[in-house]
């Protein structure tokens, strides 16, 4: 690597932040496509409201609260990193990861309940009662929340790796990048929650 690789930056926005913004834009378009497909179908089939009744608003609201709290702790980690306090930043990042874990535990309880009630991709119960169209709601439910859960896992992994990297006080600016990604994960959930849980 040549000596001057970090000295040529002459623009204002730090490189990592700019790259992260572009990544987030790309991710939002992926979820945007998915949400648009869901909305088009939802408008066409008002009877999906009958399916949405089976989603648990309580668990959804709980998960929203958990994610919002974890977003708060990652902001505290960012502040600590800005003040050059790696220990403190690491502690808040750990809390954020625990928040992510809680989210996933809640989600898996929810999934197991729904699956045991027969509300799955193919939903044999619904097919038998002649309401085949309903099953597509669950297809959308699982793909949207599933893809989001995948992003939660990725976010937790990223936060964990950066938590190890800042141990000696290096690379503290990366905490902000992890935080940006985590806020995006949170923001997507804020869209999914009303679409899948509240609109019945």
């Amino acid at each position: 690597m040549s000596n001057s690789s970090t000295t040529v930056d002459i623009r204002q926005t730090p490189q990592g932040r700019l790259g992260m913004w572009i990544l987030i834009a790309g991710e939002l378009i992926i979820f945007g496509g998915l949400i648009a497909c869901y909305l088009l179908n939802r408008i066409r089939y008002p009877e999906w409201g009958m399916e949405a009744v089976h989603t648990s608003t309580f668990f959804g609201a709980l998960n929203t609260a958990v994610l919002l709290l974890s977003s708060f702790t990652i902001v505290l980690a960012h502040t600590a990193a800005n003040n050059m306090k790696p220990r403190k930043a690491q502690m808040y990042m750990m809390l954020t990861i625990i928040g992510g874990l809680l989210f996933l535990v809640n989600k898996s309880i929810e999934y197991s309940r729904e699956i045991s009630e027969g509300l799955t991709f193919s939903s044999p119960k619904l097919v038998a009662s002649g309401k085949e169209v309903g099953s597509l709601f669950w297809s959308f439910y699982y793909i949207m929340t599933g893809l989001h859960a995948l992003h939660v896992v990725v976010g937790m992994t990223v936060i964990f790796i950066i938590m190890l990297q800042i141990r000696k006080g290096n690379n503290l600016h990366r905490v902000e990048l992890a935080g940006m990604y985590w806020h995006m994960v949170d923001l997507i959930w804020i869209f999914l929650f009303p679409l899948l849980y509240i609109a019945k």
Partner: peptide, 11 residues
């Protein structure tokens, strides 16, 4: 590319 490919990734 970035703006157009997202929905197809979902698709």
């Amino acid at each position: 590319f970035m703006f157009a490919v997202g929905p197809l990734v979902a698709g």
